Amino acid sequence: MESNSTKVAKIATKMAICDRHEEERLKKVYDEKGIKVTAVNVGGNINSSITKILESALVAAKRNGLIREEHLHEGALIGAARDAIIQIGNRASGLNVGGKIGIARGGEHISVCIFLNIGLLHLDEVVIGIGHRSLPI
């Protein structure tokens, strides 16, 4: 039996890896199931982009109603996003990246998934990181 936190993490991952057209369709599908989702594109040098990635995740989550503008909600989202960044940090350190952040909220569960392409000469590497928090409804 799959837990709600696992379901929400899988949905965040789908949002991070889908294209823009599919993203709009998934928003409608998950909204009907009571799950709020959003995604935002990110890119640049990973070392100088961490603050921008965190800010982008926070703004997208607020703008799409996944979290409220209050300390507890914002802290949970930033904590989950930082966990995801920590997971990708070693592989992407100092390199240029491009990709997407997917965020999903179902009830008390919120997950942030970061999916990135890493530019390394002519070799394209991919990396994924995911973080989860629980917060009051």
Rank of each mutant, 00 (worst) to 15 (best):
A9G: 01
K10I: 07
I11A: 08
T13I: 04
M15E: 09
M15N: 05
I17N: 03
I17D: 10
C18H: 03
D19A: 09
H21V: 14
H21S: 12
E23R: 14
E24F: 11
K27P: 09
K28E: 15
V29I: 15
V29T: 15
V29A: 07
V29F: 15
Y30A: 07
D31P: 00
E32C: 10
E32K: 14
K33Y: 03
G34W: 04
G34N: 05
G34D: 13
G34R: 00
I35T: 09
I35S: 01
K36T: 06
K36A: 06
K36N: 08
V40G: 01
V40I: 14
V42C: 02
N45W: 06
I46K: 01
S48C: 03
S49D: 10
S49F: 10
S49P: 00
T51Y: 13
K52M: 14
K52T: 13
L54S: 08
E55F: 02
E55Y: 00
S56H: 08
S56Y: 02
A57D: 09
V59K: 13
A61H: 06
I67T: 01
R68P: 01
R68G: 12
E74V: 10
A76C: 15
L77G: 04
I78R: 12
I78H: 06
A81I: 03
R82M: 13
A84F: 07
A84R: 00
I85Y: 00
Q87K: 07
G89K: 08
A92L: 01
S93H: 13
G94W: 12
L95I: 06
V97H: 01
G98C: 09
K100E: 04
I101P: 02
I103D: 05
A104E: 05
R105K: 15
G106Y: 05
G106R: 00
G107S: 09
E108N: 14
E108H: 09
S111I: 01
S111R: 00
C113S: 04
F115L: 04
L116P: 05
L116R: 05
L116Q: 14
L121V: 08
H122L: 11
L123C: 12
E125Q: 12
V126T: 12
I130G: 04
